[in-house]
């Protein structure tokens, strides 16, 4: 879904680097593939570094090509984090898209650093005990010129952000929440709906940070005040992965949402 939206947003002059994940599989079998873009498929932890070499090669060949790294949350938060951090710190000139489905969905949905508290996965059958890793904030601490979040629930916002990212030079980070019906346990027809619920309940903030200036996207503006947020339960109850959630876990998740927004408010003030 996100891949198609990117196609609409970025136009033709794009080269992809796809690290191990679902997107390595949905291309289909060689020697054919189902992508309209040239793609370098590469090992899990190598995407940002390969992109660092690729955009420089295009520059040396005087070609105006937007290099995009396509990675899952496992490849971003866990095994590829050193490579991501290095490329962000060097302010390498490419767009990094993290397709965040909050687990290792390609290998069966095992927990990752990006899995939220309380979620049941094959490797956390009792529910994950820790909170989701704050990738966007971590990226901001790398002084990158552009960092944003989006959700497949709001494709226009997502495409706007990609278009804006394309005009900026340097390291651009976009994290897209992509609800996975098989890992999150809901009916696949509700994918877009769940993506919207995540935003409406303020679990997933839609933000855009350009050169350190934090901007809350329209769809998330109601989250700035606690009273106007939709109850978190509306997002959690449609998913089977939260079936083990007890009252304490629920409170934990609520305070996680509060914490996130407090932090955003603080960033907006500075």
């Amino acid at each position: 879904m996100t891949m198609r939206m990117m196609g609409m947003a970025l136009g033709n002059n794009v080269a992809l680097i796809v690290v191990a994940g679902c997107s390595s599989v949905i291309q289909g079998m060689g020697p054919k593939n189902s992508y309209g873009y040239p793609a370098l498929n590469i090992a899990f932890a190598a995407g940002p570094a390969a992109a660092s070499g690729m955009w420089r090669a295009f520059k040396q060949r005087n070609k105006d090509v937007t290099v995009v790294v396509w990675a899952g949350d496992g490849g971003t938060a866990d095994i590829g984090f050193a490579s991501l951090s290095g490329a962000a710190e060097r302010n390498e000139n490419f767009i990094y898209v993290c397709v965040d489905n909050e687990a290792y969905m390609n290998s069966g949905g095992q927990r990752s650093g990006s899995t939220p508290h309380g979620a049941v996965t094959p490797t956390t059958p009792e529910g994950k005990k820790e909170n989701k890793k704050e990738l966007l904030f971590l990226m901001l601490d790398h002084h990158v010129p552009y960092a944003a979040t989006a959700s497949v629930g709001y494709p226009h916002d997502l495409m706007d952000k990609l278009r804006r990212a394309k005009t900026i030079e340097g390291f651009r980070y976009l994290q897209v929440l992509t609800p996975d019906p098989y890992g999150w346990l809901f009916d696949p027809s509700r994918t877009a709906e769940v993506g919207k619920l995540a935003v409406q309940t303020c679990y997933w903030p839609l933000l855009e940070v350009v050169n350190g200036r934090v901007q809350v996207s329209n769809e998330s503006l109601h989250c700035l005040r606690k009273e106007t947020r939709r109850p978190l339960r509306d997002f959690l109850s449609v998913q089977g992965r939260y079936k083990r959630l007890n009252d304490q876990d629920y409170k934990e998740l609520e305070s996680y949402v509060d914490y996130t927004w407090d932090r955003i408010l603080k960033l907006m003030r500075t």
């Binding site: 370098l40 995407g47 570094a49 992109a51 660092s52 070499g53 090669a57 060097r90």
Partner: peptide, 21 residues
């Protein structure tokens, strides 16, 4: 490219090589 590990050193070199340099 002053990378952050050897794994990335090879990845940078590979990324440039497959893109024509």
């Amino acid at each position: 490219v002053r990378v952050e590990s050897e794994h990335s050193a090879m990845a940078v070199t590979l990324g440039a090589a497959v893109s024509g340099v």
